[in-house]
Design a binder for these strands. Sequence first.
DNA 1: CGAACCCTTGATACGCTTCAACAAGAGTGG
DNA 2: CCACTCTTGTTGAAGCGTATCAAGGGTTCG
Lengths: 240, 240
Amino acid sequence: MPTRLLDPLAAAPPPRLPIDWATLLDPAPPRALAAALDRIAAQRVVEPGQSIFARGQPARDLVAVLAGTVALGRRGGDGRLALQRRVAAREWLDLGSAWLGDAHGEDAVALGRVRVLELPARGLRALLPDQPGLAEALLAALAREARVLADLGHDLMHKDAGRRVADWLLERCLPAGQDLLVPLHERKRDIAAELAVAPETLSRCLRQLREQGLIAVEGYRITVLDLQGLKALAREAPGD
Amino acid sequence: MPTRLLDPLAAAPPPRLPIDWATLLDPAPPRALAAALDRIAAQRVVEPGQSIFARGQPARDLVAVLAGTVALGRRGGDGRLALQRRVAAREWLDLGSAWLGDAHGEDAVALGRVRVLELPARGLRALLPDQPGLAEALLAALAREARVLADLGHDLMHKDAGRRVADWLLERCLPAGQDLLVPLHERKRDIAAELAVAPETLSRCLRQLREQGLIAVEGYRITVLDLQGLKALAREAPGD
DNA sequence: CGAACCCTTGATACGCTTCAACAAGAGTGG
DNA sequence: CCACTCTTGTTGAAGCGTATCAAGGGTTCG
């Protein structure tokens, strides 16, 4: 992985763009708070494949994704990322560690060109007493993170690969004319990593779904043929 | 599972005992806040095996364990609890769901006789603006929950049963005279559930550790014979 | 064209669960 | 006191699910 993708000439978008705080903080911050946040916020553009932060590195800032997609996981011994989840724009990255000021518990890697927001935890903490809305917004974000993580753990424990794939397809399918499409914008091996399976296994799962007539696979475009069947396969199963 | 363990005559400890808020909330709350919390707090005693809250049930209260131990997980289709983790006194239960007011994401079951604290989320939210310390304490608790859940997910993904058992033993072993003891206060099948393995697998793992000379097993008393060996087996492994 | 990817497929291996059987202890009632 | 049963832990055998290894075909790019 070449570390020299940085190009000083690149007409990068100006590092400072107005931030729409309302999309990041649930009880949208009032003017005064937004202004205060603007003062301590930093923005950074990260090139594809580059690390946003690394596991073990002390977390001083709360990091959110403003644009692009980020992979959150842990690097295995071989340096490859064992993905746990994928974080899209408007979400926070490893908020728990950041707020505690601990070392980051995970590695964050930009999947495409990504713009991230960095908010120093110290500064934020200082704002807390005067800005009640801020606390609520942070609490809500943190609570959501906890829920997502809990669900993730359960899925890993109780759903086999086929079910996770079906789930994933259902979450991603978009209506397009008559039928449901699932456009794949990433490499299948990355999807496999997100689902915590080997790439070969994902391939086999998709083939199986295809053979059952539930989906049609044409390269990077998947069509859902039998929504009900897929749902039955995904959620119905044991427990729940 | 008999649902009629409730005994109206039981000389239950008086449902209201003074609460040591400092052990529950990290920046210990000042007097005024503690008093306010006392006013909205409720306490409840739950008998062994009884449910504290159930998955899907709307969460109105933030629940913490004051005394005893609680199993947090999901009931499978057969009604048995697929344990995800075990929560001891002084910790919160499914704080994320509770704060959001969502349905609980997990079932909580008392493992022994348990005393729980219930704090209405609405009332708490009302206190937020006037009590900056409260927000910080909740944020910290929530952040810790997120971290625990993230670690848990990673362990499930990347550590096999043997490693999880070794980990668990290391977390539990206590110095006793010359050597390290791990007293088991619960049924082994419950331990197995906590480790997300079948009881038979736990049995086999323990036997294997015994055959390697790392531990000695005598019923419900395990002795760690080779701490270094156990550590090597637990953490060293692939990745990390 | 070859090189470097990526996805797919097959064969094989391993870990864990499941099922079934059994021994050991606790509680119960004759 | 002894059967009887229930529960728990252990062990073995079989099977499922997934990873791993190896090979092949399809692109894209130089």
